[in-house]
Design a protein around this nucleic acid. Sequence first.
DNA 1: TGTACATCAGTGAACGCGCGTTCACTGATGTAC
DNA 2: TGTACATCAGTGAACGCGCGTTCACTGATGTAC
Lengths: 207, 207
Amino acid sequence: MSARVRSRRGQGESLRDDILAAAQALLVETQSEDAVSIRAVADRVGVTPPSIYRHFEDKATLLFAVCMTEFDRLDVELRAALACHDDPVEAVIACGRAYVQFGLANPETYRIMFMGSSEWTPDQYRDELMADHAAFTGLVEAVGRASDAGRLRIADPMMAAVLLFQGVHGMVSLRIAKPNFPWPDVETHIDLTIATMGDALFLDAPE
Amino acid sequence: MSARVRSRRGQGESLRDDILAAAQALLVETQSEDAVSIRAVADRVGVTPPSIYRHFEDKATLLFAVCMTEFDRLDVELRAALACHDDPVEAVIACGRAYVQFGLANPETYRIMFMGSSEWTPDQYRDELMADHAAFTGLVEAVGRASDAGRLRIADPMMAAVLLFQGVHGMVSLRIAKPNFPWPDVETHIDLTIATMGDALFLDAPE
DNA sequence: TGTACATCAGTGAACGCGCGTTCACTGATGTAC
DNA sequence: TGTACATCAGTGAACGCGCGTTCACTGATGTAC
């Protein structure tokens, strides 16, 4: 790739953003975690491999930084879905749809974030953090509102959130892992998955 | 490792079984796909690496052969669970429990079988085949019996089987991928997951 | 019963690969005097 | 206004790694005559 113009003194941090963007673009284009090597990223940015280490401790840290920005995007989309509905149950349902759509639209990112081994995860991105992440707490809050409205079939909103989470995750991760399985049409599949979870966990609105 | 005694003429196939057993043992002990290298397997069997290629085309084929024997074990356990119950709904529920237990007891195998990239899958183990595999067809049949008994809430038994499958998969794969997440107690988690799926898909038995 | 030979199971050594990472460095740029 | 110097962004070359895989081979064993 063409060489990048060297940053001015004090502007070194701008390379960090370029590295993140290049790594993400590479991931999106190749849909392969393996294709995102230190060398490939450096090449794409127009810089030599050792430069990466000025900004990221190691490869895993870089990869998770990329995923974290994707995670933030997911959070934005889930909150947007929640915000579209006054009814708390409808809000949660919309949130589930948005989650599935995000996952299917970003399969390799989804794979890294939710299907990889926790062994590879750098310390600053430990699993526990996921529970505190905005995307998940947003869901817990929304389910909590449904609970407050007396619309939840089970007592514990946190447990209900876990069941919802694993329900949509089951669909997304299986479709990603087994793309050649004779799945139903994707829209039908989403509708049925969401409807099943909804029926199982929520009560209809009292009139 | 100690050297293996060379097979007699005509007995060469016995090495194949030893290789499979060694690879599987390595997978179980290390719980790491990466630890199952051609060299490590050969070393464990007491043979040199090129010998492996007499019996397996390449590494992926070996790994999938291992998984296939595990798959057969899963099938046996699921059928055993089905066979314990006359009531078709109870049979399916028991099948779900057995599935979850198998997955959680064999996390790395489960990861390879259901959470890996389909890119790595050798041709003879393509995803489509999974739909025809005994373990899945057994589930479809059991759901079909529930349907015949008028106990299914949705019309299509195949679709119901898919929903059940992804339901239990969601729980298993998330617990494997995120072991440090604050999950509920595993028994409670199984009970709630299965009960939720059951309530959503099945009708109670008419008295 | 003996011997030459084909076959078969497995070996030893090496290839090439791309990777993550480290090290000592260079040269432009801003700053202090 | 000029100059010496410290700093900073990034370089070039190489390390060591373990891997999957290939190749030409060896030597024991069964078989045909």
